[in-house]
Simulated scan of single mutants.
Amino acid sequence: MGDAVALVTGASRGIGRSIALALAADGVAVGLLSRDGEALTAVTREITEAGGRAAWATADVGDAAQVGDAVAHLTAQLGTPDLLVNNAGRIDAEVPIWEADVEQWHGVVSANLLGSFHVSRAVLALMVAAGRGRVVDIVSGAGARDWNVTSAYTATKAAQIRLVGHVHEAGFDLGLRSFAIAPGTVETAMSTSMRLHAGRTDFTPVERTTDLIAAIARGELDDWSGRYLRVTNDTPQTLRAHGAPQGLARRFGVLPWGQDDPLATETLVPPRT
């Protein structure tokens, strides 16, 4: 992909590591960001030994100052990112909200929502100045529907989907494209630690996520900017075959009860297509 540059958060392990390796194999220079410098060094070595280009920086994405320093370091090494993947995240205990641990709840909000905000704020300003860029937030099916546990995780993933819509509306005319991708249940340390997935064997291959992100990086799915994509149902091929979605399809919102619901005729900001 020529001189394309990507920045991937949470790149030291799990889905983030797989995304970084796949982008590097596709010819993208990759900036790696997480809190674990030792693990990032190993991922960087794996990329460079395969002939790719990578740089790394450590930061707690919940800390705006650390993120600013890390983004400055990575852009100095690689250039302005053409693609940002907000992947860093945590999950809280599988309990209802009245049993939630306050400190843990705050930590999940910091990593998932504030983390996405801090990194997006730093990187998208550079993209706007360059007149182009794409951003992917790794979200979850749990953020697109109601769930009875992990209230911090579901709330932050829903908020990330809304941020994707915000970037689409605010940045489309400035050359930005944004996407929310739910990766299904990938076999990672986080997913296998959950009671919900105890004994599970039918995990979603991570390649379905990396293939979709690679297609986004190549500009093949720009018609789907601002939309929610779920890799258990969507592939680059099916999305291209469908063509540009219309209206509020795959947008995050509240459904009216029918045509007689006042919400159905309420004046809303029309979505960009």
Rank of each mutant, 00 (worst) to 15 (best):
V254F: 04
D92F: 11
R145P: 10
G219V: 00
E46G: 03
V139E: 15
V269A: 15
N86V: 06
H197V: 07
L78P: 06
R17L: 14
F117E: 09
V206P: 01
A55Q: 14
G175V: 06
L33M: 10
D3F: 15
L33I: 05
R45Y: 14
S116P: 13
T154H: 05
V206G: 01
L40P: 01
Q104F: 07
A198W: 15
A180P: 01
G184W: 01
G131N: 11
V108M: 03
L263M: 05
V30M: 15
I15G: 00
V95Q: 02
E94H: 02
P96N: 02
S18D: 04
S34P: 05
T209G: 03
R121P: 03
D260W: 10
E49A: 06
T210W: 05
P256I: 02
V186Y: 00
V61P: 07
D92E: 03
A4D: 12
L124H: 09
T273C: 13
P183A: 00
R272V: 12
R162A: 15
T150P: 07
L124A: 05
V85N: 06
V123T: 10
A25R: 02
T9Y: 00
P81F: 06
A241F: 14
A29P: 03
D36S: 13
V164S: 11
Q237W: 13
A11F: 03
T80E: 08
W98M: 14
